[in-house]
Design a protein around this nucleic acid. Structure first.
Lengths: 261, 261
DNA sequence: TTGTTTTTTGTTTGTTTTACCCAAAATAGT
DNA sequence: ACTATTTTGGGTAAAACAAACAAAAAACAA
């Protein structure tokens, strides 16, 4: 049996009977319990179930179609690296903002066990984090944009204006030295502008494909950004540019840090 | 059996029969009494029951939105009947409000193909309807209440105040002739009050278990209600009461309408 | 095809969690 | 105050987990 087939069957099973045990699945598929644990682990990270001692379960209704987010497979390993890096900055007691980007969604699985407050415009982030009691979850609400899985519009903006956060983790479409941070969608850009504005510390999440490009709508200039988290090392010009503006830069190597030696 | 499953079953049991003994549970699940004690301890810490010498119990009466989680799982066929009935009132082009009740969630599957606008405080409703492009989805946002899967609080209320809807479908905990529509949770009640207020036509969704009871917080009086949708036929007294107030009543038979013959 | 790399699965080892047993302390009933 | 029962805490065994490594399978390039 194909590994993916097994995972799909596990997903179906857990959807059907709400909870499964490791031993049950191991004997069902004739594989080791370790293999099952690995499967459950990856399924949990995709937000399809929640692991517990001895097995896994789902809460009825909440986790519906997050599996689609699995398919956004471009640059996933890089985004996970960035997500892991970002999670390092998030401590218990923090109040953070997560936008409706793929990377922000990946951050969720890294922080699900922390005791924090999360403000988000993303439905996927909300759905995922709603399973964890230790997360104090606040949604911006507003008009739902299917394409981005984001709540936007005047209502969302007004709601954001009611809160302050310690750290905001915001992605974008393009980053350019001259034109700053830009996005393709006006509504999304407006939300991101606000999330950054309401944060003590703004983290710009951007993989290398976004640099040196300009998109339609402006989110903000570099003066609002405190930290940039990128996937691959940027060139010297960018290093100098960010350094001048007192912006910290974190570059997540694709593989081991030892690679750089 | 999964440890978590056992705890859930204990929770259901104590909700069902008000009190349980350690020895009873130990023999029921074939574990030692110490194990049960630990379970009860952790359940007590999450506020789901109160431990006493020899067992545990819950207080039935004023402040118990605890029973609601059990309530979710009962009378499902009835709720589906009500949901189907409600869906008949919803037409293309309508703007409707759905609250965070089980019945409202059931309504979703009935209206998923209609071209409508939906305002909701329920994460489950949002998650479900987000998959359908024909649904214009608006979330109230706000602070997430895990127990109800609902967004509440000041932000949610402010957002609701920005919209008007044609029809609101709202459930509750209790319905009483003298004290009107009431609920166990203050935050949820506040949201429901507003949803009703902002609707041209307010539909009260209530299965028979809710009638002639009073809960802690008031949602509204009968003057705000336009239609009542119940599962089983109400008694003559209620018929008269609603008729006097010009409130339409729809009673959904449990099975086929032919059953009543 | 062959050989190499990558991915997946199984195995081993050590750690953590859970459940059980037993004895001492605490509690309720008489 | 006495007694029977329950609770608590310590110690122990078993189950589950995590991490590291080895083997097998699959994917890939030459």
């Amino acid at each position: 049996m194909l590994a993916l087939t097994r995972k799909n069957k596990i997903r179906e099973l857990v959807l059907e009977q709400k909870n499964v045990t490791v031993s049950e699945l191991a004997s069902l598929f004739s594989v080791t319990e370790e293999t099952i644990r690995r499967d459950l682990k990856s399924l949990e990270e995709s937000g399809l179930l929640i692991r517990t001692y001895g097995g896994a379960y789902i809460q009825d209704g909440v986790v519906n179609d997050l599996r689609d987010s699995l398919r956004e497979t471009i640059l996933v390993p890089n985004k996970q690296k960035i997500a892991k890096k970002c999670a390092e900055f998030i401590n218990n007691g923090d109040t953070i903002a997560l936008d409706a980007s793929t990377t922000a969604f990946h951050i969720c699985s890294e922080i699900k066990n922390k005791r924090i407050t999360v403000l988000t415009d993303s439905l996927k982030v909300s759905s995922y984090l709603s399973n964890y009691d230790n997360i104090h979850l606040i949604s911006t609400g507003g008009t739902f944009l299917n394409k981005y899985s984001s709540f936007t519009g005047k209502s969302a903006q007004k709601t954001i204006m009611e809160y302050f956060v310690d750290k905001a983790f915001v992605s974008c479409r393009s980053v350019d030295m001259q034109h700053g941070i830009t996005d393709a969608n006006e509504e999304i850009a407006a939300i991101r502008t606000l999330l950054i504005e309401r944060a003590k510390k703004a983290f710009l999440i951007a993989d290398h494909s976004k640099f040196d490009n300009v998109s339609f709508v402006s989110i903000c200039g570099f003066d609002k950004i405190d930290v940039v988290v990128a996937d691959e090392p940027l060139n010297a010009e960018w290093h100098e540019f960010l350094k001048q503006r007192n912006i910290s830069l974190f570059e997540c190597a694709q593989d081991d840090p030892a690679d750089k030696a």
